[in-house]
Amino acid sequence: MAIVRGLAALVIAAGVLGGAVPAQAHDHVQGSLTIVHPWSRATAPSQKAGGVFLVIQNAGDRPDRLIGIESDMADIASLHASIRDGDVVKMRPVKGGIEVPAKGEVALAPGGKHVMLIGLREQLIKESTFPLTLIFERAGPIEVVAVVESAGARRPAAGDPEHDHDAATARSGK
């Protein structure tokens, strides 16, 4: 765990010192839970809401539950879900948290469940990072670092380079 903390600190340090981190996947492990590559999207200064997306893997024999989020980045950090009702899209708070099945995983991804940051205190700038804490019923708090991707990113750049806007642009620019 100390190593993971160290790694997280390194990622944060890189973000602070360099103003940017290289786009590579980063995971946070605590007990049987692994938080895979938390990421967010760049916002405009005028934009007061943002989303955070990630995957939670549970290697353990018992289910756990994500019950809360803490972040200094916003006035409120909560769990929301985008719901599609015919052609109408709605966003609603997730009541009772998000279950992570034993020997399974749950994805917080665009168009589905996500962490919503409401009343952003800082603009989210592409390629910067920020910390947030996920609170689990059994595992307790897990501090993670989210990487800010482009505003319209559908998935993290490190996760799927074939379909990434910036990666594609970078390739064609070579």
């Binding site: 809401a49 943002g50 966003m91 168009g111 940051l117 505003a151 319209g152 559908r154 806007h165």
Partner: peptide, 16 residues
């Protein structure tokens, strides 16, 4: 603009 999920996704898709 206060829409952190669906609208950025859709606008990102339009840009792509």
């Amino acid at each position: 603009t206060f829409c952190p999920d669906v609208c950025p996704t859709e606008l990102g898709d339009i840009a792509l």
